[in-house]
Amino acid sequence: MVAYDGSHDAKLALRWVAEESLRTGAPVRVLAVNELLAPTWGGVGGTIVVTETYVRDCSELLGEAEKELADLGVTDVTTQTRSGNVVDEMLHAADHASVLVVGSRGHSAAGEALMGSVSQHLARHATCPVVVVREPRDATSRRIVVGIDGSVTSMAALDFAVRRAEETGETVVAIHGWRDHVASADVWSSEPRMIEIQEHELLLAESLAGMRSEHPDVRIEHEAISVAPEKCLVDASAHASLVVVGSRGQGYFRGLLLGSVSQAVLHRAQCPVVVVR
């Protein structure tokens, strides 16, 4: 399912979905939401004024999206219009989608850019993987970068990346980064530091072992780097076709729906990002 609002990034998302549909044969569902802006209350000199509810009509956008997909060769398309809160309607409509695709920045009813609101909310709450599409810095890249921290969701992200690479022939680059905390004992000996590095390298190797045996035809590279994971992934995204992250990792606070690393990557990555649960 692709959310479409006519913005530049929504058109990028539409093209991304078209490529996926042509590659996999999956049908496409396009959703446009007639966004409602709540009434505004105000008053001067004791007089209460209530403005009318504002509705941004998106019905014409569906025809535009359908034509764009047809021009790209995609014919198995259904369209749908809903009215209400954009995020709520998208989440409800995506309940039975295999993946939800949105542009990085869209338009609200007031015409404002929406990174950090719609995209972030969908990445937090959707029950299926969410793809946030933006123009890649390196359009020729054949590398899928995936963040690994040993959590259940990072393993789901790795599985997503490897299965995709199995179909596309791309290389998977598994990156495990960590914030470096130098122990006081390092002043006298390098042993504690070496033990810490070996533990991180072991975590990465164990995470990849099963995938390499189950998907022998996929080229999997790996890097363990003592740099904050969000920085590792954002830097790697400059030469990636896609970055895949779990919705939350080992260090998330109880009840947090989207981890700090995932949020940082969504904001700063230089290619499309997939958030997997």
Rank of each mutant, 00 (worst) to 15 (best):
A126C: 04
G255M: 05
N85V: 02
G106K: 00
L257D: 06
A269G: 07
T78P: 00
L114M: 09
H222D: 15
S184N: 08
A70Q: 11
R164C: 09
R15G: 11
E35A: 12
E112F: 08
H181S: 13
I195K: 09
D88F: 02
V74D: 02
E19I: 03
G150M: 09
D76R: 14
A26C: 05
E52M: 00
G43S: 03
A174C: 06
I144G: 09
V118W: 02
S141R: 10
V227M: 08
A10D: 06
A26S: 11
V152G: 09
V99G: 01
T127E: 12
S184T: 15
D235A: 14
V146M: 13
C232D: 06
W16M: 09
S213H: 09
S7Y: 05
S241D: 10
I220S: 08
G210H: 13
M1E: 00
I175P: 04
V152T: 15
A18V: 01
E230N: 11
G251K: 02
V74A: 00
G84Q: 07
F253W: 14
N85H: 12
M115P: 01
P229W: 10
A240Y: 08
T75S: 14
M211K: 13
F160Q: 07
A157G: 04
Q120P: 00
A18C: 01
D180A: 13
S98N: 13
L69H: 04
A264I: 00
E221W: 12
V28E: 12
E201T: 06
G73A: 01
V74P: 01
A236W: 03
L100T: 06
G150E: 06
V218A: 07
I195L: 08
I197M: 11
V131K: 04
R29Q: 12
S98I: 03
V44Y: 08
E230V: 00
V145F: 08
L36P: 00
I220M: 14
V218T: 05
L258W: 04
V145K: 09
E52N: 10
L204T: 05
V182R: 15
H92D: 15
R248M: 09
K11Q: 09
H125Y: 15
S83L: 06
V145H: 08
H215E: 13
L208M: 07
V132P: 02
E196Q: 10
T40S: 13
V234K: 02
P192D: 08
R254W: 10
R277C: 07
R212I: 13
V101T: 04
V133P: 01
T168H: 10
E221I: 09
S237P: 09
V118C: 01
P229R: 07
P229E: 11
G111R: 07
E206L: 08
V245I: 12
A174Y: 08
D5G: 03
S184W: 11
V145E: 11
G111L: 10
R134C: 04
V162Y: 11
V74W: 01
M211G: 00
W178G: 06
G106A: 03
R248W: 12
T81W: 06
D57M: 05
V245Y: 03
V162M: 11
V99K: 06
V173F: 14
V118R: 02
G246F: 02
E206Q: 12
K67F: 00
H8R: 14
V2G: 04
L114T: 15
V28L: 07
S247M: 03
G177R: 03
H125E: 15
A110H: 06
I197V: 11
S190L: 10
V244C: 14
T171F: 03
